[in-house]
C-alpha cells in the first residue's frame, strides 16, 4: 500500500500552499485521481485520515475526489474512447487497429484548495 506515501505527498503540497499563501489551516482540497494512476481512493482517504491526527493545519481538511476514467485517442482517425471500467481497457482502435494514446486516467493531481 503506497497510498501512505501518496497521502504524505498530498500533505507536503498542502503545507507549501498554506505557507505560500499565509493560511493557518486548509479547509478543503480537491484531488483528481485517475483510474490507472495506481492509487486506490479509499486507501488514500484512509491514509490521509491517519496523518490528519498528527497535523493541526489539516485537522479539518475535507478531501474532494474527482475520479477520472481512462480516455484514449486514436492517432489515425482521432476518435476518442472512454472506459468506465479498467477491466474493459483495450488500447487498440477498433477501426484502425492502431494503438490508442492515453489522454486521461493517469492523473494524480491537486486541483484546488480552500483555506483560512
Amino acid at each position: 500500500m503506497h497510498e501512505g506515501a501518496i497521502a504524505q505527498s498530498v500533505v507536503e503540497v498542502l503545507r507549501d500552499i498554506k505557507d505560500q499563501n499565509g493560511l493557518l489551516s486548509i479547509t478543503s482540497a480537491t484531488l483528481k485521481i485517475g483510474a490507472i494512476s495506481g492509487v486506490v481512493v479509499d486507501a488514500l482517504l484512509f491514509a490521509f485520515e491517519a496523518i490528519q491526527k498528527e497535523e493541526d493545519f489539516i485537522k479539518d481538511t475535507k478531501l474532494n475526489i474527482i475520479y477520472v476514467n481512462v480516455k484514449a485517442r486514436c492517432s489515425i482517425c482521432g476518435k476518442t474512447f472512454e472506459f468506465d471500467n479498467t477491466d474493459d481497457l483495450v488500447m487498440i482502435c477498433p477501426d484502425c487497429q492502431m494503438p490508442l494514446a492515453i489522454i486521461n486516467g493517469k492523473e494524480l493531481e491537486i486541483v484546488d484548495v480552500e483555506g483560512q
Binding site: 499563501n21 484546488d112 480552500e114
Partner: peptide
C-alpha cells in the same frame, strides 16, 4: 476563506 487554484501533481517532488 480563500480558494486557491493549484493544479499541481501530487508526486511533483518525486518527478
Amino acid at each position: 476563506m480563500k480558494r486557491i487554484v493549484v493544479e499541481k501533481k501530487i508526486l511533483e517532488k518525486n518527478d
